[in-house]
Amino acid sequence: MSEKKHNVSRRQFLTYTLTGVGGFMAAGVILPMARFAVDPVLKAGAESDMYAVAEVADLTEEPQRFDFSYEQVDAWYQSEVTETAWIYREGDNIVALSPTCTHLGCTVNWDANEDYPDQFFCPCHFGRFEKDGTNIAGTPPTEPLHKYVTEVRDGTVYLGTAEPQI
């Protein structure tokens, strides 16, 4: 009696089985594609990484050089990148400038030329910048030095990406 109630016809059995198996196969194909499609969304946070660079106690009014490194994946090649920041304090404010000359990308140094004390100086084409990074008119650079996003946590200075000041 109960056998009759639960009886499944050959056709029904095949339909269920095929739908079931087909469904699994379709899911197997579609899910990875969906995962790849949303992947950039899931990774969005990775670019805004902050790196511990210096201790607040070490900072002075005079810009000082601090190096920091991190892993960078460039297409298929992973490498360790070392970046530099010129960091100084201005009252309670902490300013971190990128050493990359805004002209053609040489590395600038603080107070490096005797003729121009208390300025950032680029040895390549004699570009100059004020302490706050402003480019000095009459020298090749056309915009101020880029400024790092800074954050202070427990007495340590963390730097993010360097962003244009204008």
Partner: peptide, 8 residues
Amino acid sequence: EKQFKGRV
């Protein structure tokens, strides 16, 4: 090259 990128 890194130091003198803009001239070298």
